[in-house]
Design a protein around this nucleic acid. Structure first.
Length: 448
RNA sequence: GGUCCGGUGGCAGAGUGGUGAUGCAGCGGACUGCAAAUCCGCGUAUGUGGGUUCGAUUCCCGCCCGGACCUCCA
């Protein structure tokens, strides 16, 4: 087994991964806030950490992968007020949609998927500990984390508290002792979601949920924490402050991984630019596997441009992989080729793994059945190439019988050297978007 | 403005202190009733100016450009 190396944001460099417990690796990833359909940017961390979890399972005996669901949040409240739909209905529907979209992209479910609203008691426990130890204070119905009480605040994200103070643009709430203090708990009005607490009926701030859920499901200290680069500050900085202060002597997450952002045609995705793309929009245009493959063709820490040309290229590459599998009838269950495993163990270098897969495809094309089986095994580690090749090429459609009949007629025409008829049938099918490929073993066809 | 990250061939995208992966596109050839696919071959790149070094794309500094964060955000 190769050594796993991961880029750790704490040291800003690649490190040998040393699990706290080599028999049980624990990973926490910041999950979605369920107020609207997931966009393609949300798909990136889901896919990246899915591959990470798959890799960890190959390398270690036991892995617990926790990805939370934020189902109490002011964005949800705003949505409910605007649409009139009850909050519970919004979160339930959006979570179901998220699960469907993420599964379509070939992601396995995390081992635990806790919801914030099921962990309010744990959040209150942590807040009480913070107050008791002088790291938090109640004021005007709110509870705030006292940033000056944590000497290392800002160290993680590389900013000094002075800078943060100077950069504060928003008016500082009067109940804050220090401008940088952030909310752990805030009061709710009767129409807003709320829970009874020592500070009255209220709801949690954003950051506390991750401290509570990682603690409950993974313990005070665990191995890997993942999320997008946009969460480094303030979310992760605050998580660290809360958890370290609530559990003195603990180390919280040892390795911090951050996936890069995604742009569309070079532009940041935003509703105002009109280039906001949901996962569902993408799935309506191309096979889900092409989208997943595109997300893995760039290293997870880099900026990724998600556009139609890139999607088309991803699909073509998968075509070649599937042709190689189709020609060799590769069986599942082969060991993962070293070239692929080595690449992924080097800070999840998926582009290098893809290059190794191309080499396997070349060998498979030349008749190397073992290489084909290895390609398939590599695919299983990446969440790719698990479809039957003919299904990949033929896609969705209810006219398959008619197409097969036309192909049979064309084969007959070719046998009797009636090439005019054969070409007419090819043209008919081409006009319908059906491509034919004549090979030594017959004719295969594909849509699009 | 502050902090941080990055700039590799037509495009996408890795690695590396000493002949610059891989894919897509392009070009030439083989094969092919047609069309694909497949196979062989070809070309083109390390933003810019310095420094360290026998030697830098790789390390250091300046500059230019792009991006992220500083405010909800994967």
């Amino acid at each position: 087994m190769p050594e796993l190396r991961l880029h750790n944001y704490v040291s800003r460099r690649k490190e040998d991964f040393q699990p706290i417990d080599p028999n049980h690796v624990r990973m926490y990833v910041c999950g979605p806030t369920v107020y609207d359909l997931a966009h393609i940017g949300n798909a990136r961390p889901a896919v990246v950490y899915d591959v990470m979890a798959r890799l960890l399972r190959v390398l270690f005996p036991k892995v617990t992968y926790v990805r939370n669901v934020t189902d109490v949040d002011d964005k949800i409240n705003t949505r409910a007020r605007e649409s009139g739909e009850p909050i519970a209905a919004i979160t339930a529907r959006t979570l179901a949609d998220y699960h469907a979209d993420i599964a379509a992209l070939g992601n396995l479910p995390p081992d635990v998927e806790p919801r914030a609203t099921d962990n309010i008691a744990q959040m209150i426990m942590i807040i009480e500990r913070l107050i008791a130890s002088g790291h938090a204070y109640a004021a005007d119905g709110h509870v705030l984390f006292a940033v000056p009480s944590f000497a290392d605040y800002g160290k993680f994200s590389g900013r000094s508290p002075d800078e943060l103070l100077a950069g504060a643009r928003v008016d500082v709430a009067p109940y804050k002792r220090d401008a940088g203090d952030f909310v752990l708990w805030k009061p709710s009005t009767p129409e807003l979601p709320g829970w009874d607490s020592p500070w009255g009926r209220g709801r949690p701030g954003w950051h506390i949920e991750c401290s509570a859920m990682s603690w409950r499901y993974l313990g005070e200290s665990f191995d890997i924490h993942g999320g997008g680069t946009d969460l480094i500050f303030p979310h992760h900085e605050n998580e660290i402050a809360q958890s370290l202060c609530a559990f003195p002597g603990s180390t919280f997450a040892h390795t911090w991984m951050h996936n890069g952002m995604l742009v569309i045609n070079g532009e940041k995705m935003s509703k105002s630019l009109g280039n906001f793309i949901t996962i569902r929009d993408v799935l309506a245009k191309v096979p889900a596997e092409a989208a997943r493959f595109l997300l893995l063709k760039t290293h997870y820490r880099g900026l990724l441009d998600f556009n139609d040309a890139a999607l088309a290229e991803a699909r073509k590459e998968l075509d070649r992989f599937y042709r190689a599998l189709d020609r060799t009838q590769a069986a599942p269950g082969a060991p993962i080729p070293e070239t692929v495993l080595d690449a992924l163990c080097d800070d999840l270098n998926t582009p290098l793994a893809v290059a190794a897969m191309h080499a396997l495809a070349d060998a498979a094309m030349a008749g190397d059945v073992a290489a084909a089986a290895g390609l398939r095994a590599a695919g299983s580690l990446m969440g790719l190439l698990q479809t039957d090749p003919s299904e990949w090429f033929r896609g969705e459609g209810d006219d398959s019988a008619a197409i097969e009949a036309a192909i049979a007629e064309r084969i007959a025409a070719r046998k009797s050297k009636d090439f005019a008829r054969a070409d007419a049938i090819r043209k008919e099918l081409t006009d319908k978007g059906i491509q034919l490929e004549d090979g030594p073993d017959g004719t295969i066809w594909r849509r699009g």
